[in-house]
Amino acid sequence: MKRQEVIIFTTILIVSVTLISSIFIYNKNLKHKKEIVKLLQAQDISKKNTQQQYSLINEFKKYESNDENSKDFITELSNINDNNYSIDIENKQQYAYIEEDGSISVNSEDVMLLAKLINSEAGDEPFEGKIAVANVVLYRSKENKESIKDVIYAPSQFDGVQTKLFSDNPSNESFIAAREALNGKKVLDKAYYFANLKLCNPSWATEERFLCRIGDHWFFKQ
């Protein structure tokens, strides 16, 4: 085969492979977009399941207005300097996350970080949506065998970490949601991802992985 023929054959081959790849990627993206459209229509369970919603809201109000220990805890955490965590969480088991083997793996920094993440990612979400975000962090911590801090600061995982809200003091509701999740309260089980599909369409946001929608967050399993 002459050199010119080889060049022509190679060019045709490259163009063909590129064209086939483009068609495959286009069809894949088109399918994903159709899935996203369906997921956008998913019902918000915080509106559908009013009994659960009101139960959680009442629980929040109970802790906010009637539980003196909770109020003291929130006040104490609110007064902590970000670089000087001083609460001995291990001595307050009602605020600690107890592993299946009975060990306590949470310190005051973990509680603060979890509350900050909830505040930055779900500050405007319903109370159960705040707990659901915390559930994602704790599930990842368990599955990946990583600390809460490592999960929250993992590269390119939680956009809220890069926002001003993460630097601000969390709201009382965010603190309470963090506490409830660390004490075992679950809105979702096995949720590994969440996203606002009105703003983005990540590759893992598929019907197969979809669990439910709470407020403006869609939750997915791994």
Score class of each variant (00 low, 15 high):
2 K>M: 05
2 K>N: 15
4 Q>H: 07
11 T>S: 11
11 T>I: 13
16 S>C: 13
20 I>W: 09
20 I>G: 05
22 S>N: 12
26 Y>V: 04
27 N>K: 12
30 L>S: 12
32 H>P: 09
33 K>D: 15
36 I>N: 08
38 K>P: 00
42 A>R: 12
43 Q>H: 11
43 Q>L: 09
45 I>G: 01
51 Q>W: 06
53 Q>I: 01
55 S>A: 11
56 L>P: 03
58 N>T: 04
60 F>R: 00
63 Y>H: 15
63 Y>L: 11
64 E>S: 13
68 E>V: 09
68 E>G: 02
76 E>S: 07
78 S>V: 06
82 D>R: 13
82 D>T: 10
83 N>E: 09
84 N>M: 04
93 Q>V: 14
93 Q>Y: 13
98 I>Q: 08
100 E>N: 13
101 D>M: 02
103 S>R: 11
104 I>L: 06
107 N>G: 08
107 N>A: 05
108 S>E: 06
110 D>C: 01
113 L>V: 04
114 L>I: 05
115 A>R: 00
115 A>V: 04
117 L>F: 06
119 N>F: 15
121 E>F: 09
124 D>R: 04
126 P>V: 02
127 F>Q: 01
129 G>C: 00
133 V>D: 00
133 V>Y: 06
141 S>W: 00
142 K>Y: 10
146 E>C: 05
146 E>R: 10
151 V>H: 00
156 S>V: 07
165 L>V: 10
166 F>C: 04
168 D>H: 10
169 N>P: 03
169 N>D: 08
171 S>T: 15
174 S>A: 15
175 F>G: 04
177 A>V: 07
181 A>M: 05
184 G>Q: 04
188 L>F: 02
188 L>S: 04
197 L>H: 02
200 C>D: 02
200 C>N: 09
201 N>D: 13
207 E>D: 05
210 F>W: 08
213 R>G: 03
217 H>P: 11
217 H>D: 12
219 F>W: 13
222 Q>K: 13
